[in-house]
Nucleic acid binder design. Structure first.
Lengths: 349, 349
DNA sequence: GTTAGCACTCGATTTTACCGAGTGCTAACC
DNA sequence: GGTTAGCACTCGGTAAAATCGAGTGCTAAC
């Protein structure tokens, strides 16, 4: 008794081989069946040469250490977030099914077109591959330099500022002037804007002429509009694939609602993915990410990079009892293909 | 007995005043409570001076004529699609709550920016106003003429064709050439494209020079890329607001899943909305639209127009027992505001 | 340290009973 | 003839009771 009053400060995530095997068995079976796992089935399935009684003893230990939990007395065990974490951390690289591999191959040998379209289709691919909801994020282009600027007049006062960036993105902004401008003036302003902006980045927008003529005013107005975008996270694109999966994968209307509500808020999704990415991990389980409403979710992310810089990410969202090995493999494979795709194919050289 | 063997071919939707009142009472109460409605509550709520027994007699008639249905013997009545249809058709113009009116006012007096952004925000507004899932569709711009074309080279072989249309939309297309082109050549091609295309529409893209030099080839390539878009429905934009509402408004995981699955397919959503709009109606109830998976849904749409032409639509999707009066009023009000907004504000004059 | 044995727990499932809202019918009523 | 009170009947929903059994924790023997 006395020796149990204080939990001895044991080294974290140091489980002896047998405990690890048992934990893994519980996780695997629970992922498969969604049911609490009992000692008997663990003793049989895992190739431990021990009896259920022994397994039970170990299980109480695992429960005390926080890897397992009991829904109620006299039920089997269920992995905790910590349990899943251990499982994921000690996962030997998951292998992808052959049909999935083919699907990915097939997909990437056929996609063409704008980055936006590719990312969107990728999100569909991912959700088909895994049967979970996917999230694909394309990063903001604040680093990209400006290749071309065009000021087009819709009518005397309404103009459209179209900017082309070196990463192939295009933005447009309305420029509403308080004064009228002729076609010729707009064209000239456009020319000056190009001279002024080509080669610079959004972050370093230069100083503009302070003259008071129509053209200079147009130029100033345009630059300030461009400037206004910079601070926000605009340019981040988010593509959600298979949101209907949410309804099949989670149980409880309320959970479904909460998750959908989160997915609706693109800014939240972006910051979630970036948070996880920032921590350098590829999986966030349950409460590991700070998002309370997603506490019953696991999120798997993998970065997409170009020239060594992260330009986006792919992610998958499911219940904490998701099929980690396959899904992580899928995310990894797709992110790798995407990286290669953008690195060598039709968006820049 | 004998006289009931053949249902007498009575004129459609000709209900005497009392039947109409009863039907309306059933619909109203069922929308409110989601429960089958009994004869007693109808007799009391509706200001009929008749007894429940009489109401019952009328109800069997209404059931025989297809306006009501009984979930099972000895339960109250529930409206059928036909019942809702009658209700909606004979609805005196619904009135919008004051707070909602203010919200709409507030919204439209503050929105600024690109049409895309406005439409997206509108979808959020609509779903907040009504507590249902909203759909906002912006039409393709095949009619709009080209204001400006810009061919920008990303590198020797990859170019980006950016097109600005008179309705303020901007499209971009990758142009991947099989040959290399210098900066100067691209600029010249850009100039020629402008000369060629400004003022035309996508539908009527002109004939191009057949010379074999680099510039001509670039021009041809660009025009063909533009041409390729025309047939598809590209340019249609769809914004879905409040998809999480689906989980609260429908019961049954399977229904929720189906509805979400539909909403994922933007093309489907567009054609659904256009179908309904095409029929000239504003509400499609249950099986009235051809979409089997949405047979438990009602869709309310209202067109958004500019210069007398329909340029988009707003829609709301809920269960057949949705709050038609309020929601129809909301859709109508928002579509009216949107029409006004685009007609007079900052997108063209 | 391991294991067989065993009493015990407690959610899930089934059974039964019951309630009552609501119906359809009929006979009286205006 | 339409309307209504009266009444027997239906049947889903809810609650209470009974049962089942997977799984546990503990103990004593190995």
């Amino acid at each position: 008794m006395a020796r149990r009053v204080k939990t001895p400060p044991q080294p974290k995530s140091a489980l002896d081989a047998r405990k690890a095997t048992i934990l893994e068995a519980v996780v695997v079976e629970h992922i498969d069946t969604a049911q609490p796992v009992g000692s008997t089935s663990v003793a049989h399935n895992a190739d431990l040469a021990v009896s259920p009684a022994t397994v039970r003893t170990e299980m109480v230990a695992l429960e005390r250490e926080g890897y397992l939990a009991q829904p109620h007395t006299s039920a089997g065990r269920v992995p905790t977030d910590k349990g899943y974490r251990y499982f994921v951390d000690h996962l030997k690289a998951g292998e992808l099914g052959v049909p999935q591999q083919q699907q990915i191959q097939e997909f990437f040998s056929h996609v063409r077109g704008e980055m936006e379209d590719v990312l969107e289709q990728t999100s569909t691919l991912l959700s088909h591959l895994t049967n979970y909801t996917s999230v694909v994020v394309g990063s903001a282009h604040s680093r990209a330099s400006i290749l071309n600027v065009q000021l087009v007049n819709l009518d005397a006062r309404h103009h459209l500022l179209v900017t082309v960036f070196s990463d192939g993105t295009v933005t447009k902004h309305s420029v509403l002037a308080t004064f009228e401008a002729s076609h010729v003036e707009v064209t000239e302003a456009s020319r000056q804007l190009n001279a002024l902006l080509i080669g610079t980045t959004l972050e370093a927008v230069v100083q503009v002429p302070s003259r008071a003529d129509t053209i200079a005013k147009l130029v100033r107005e345009s630059v300030s509009v461009l400037h206004a975008e910079s601070p926000t996270l605009e340019g981040e694109q988010v593509y959600i694939g298979g949101s209907s999966r949410v309804a099949e994968v989670f149980d409880g209307v309320e959970t479904v609602r909460k998750v959908l509500a989160i997915l609706e808020q693109q800014l939240l999704v972006v910051s979630l993915v970036e948070d996880i990415l920032g921590k350098g991990v590829s999986v966030a389980i349950g409460s590991e990410h700070g998002f309370e409403p997603l506490s019953s979710c696991a999120v798997i992310v993998a970065p997409v990079s170009l020239d060594g810089e992260t330009i986006g990410a792919v992610g998958l969202l499911g219940p904490t009892r998701m099929k980690y090995p396959e899904v992580m493999a899928a995310a990894e494979a797709v992110s790798r293909h995407l990286t290669r795709h953008f690195g060598g194919e039709d968006e820049r050289g």
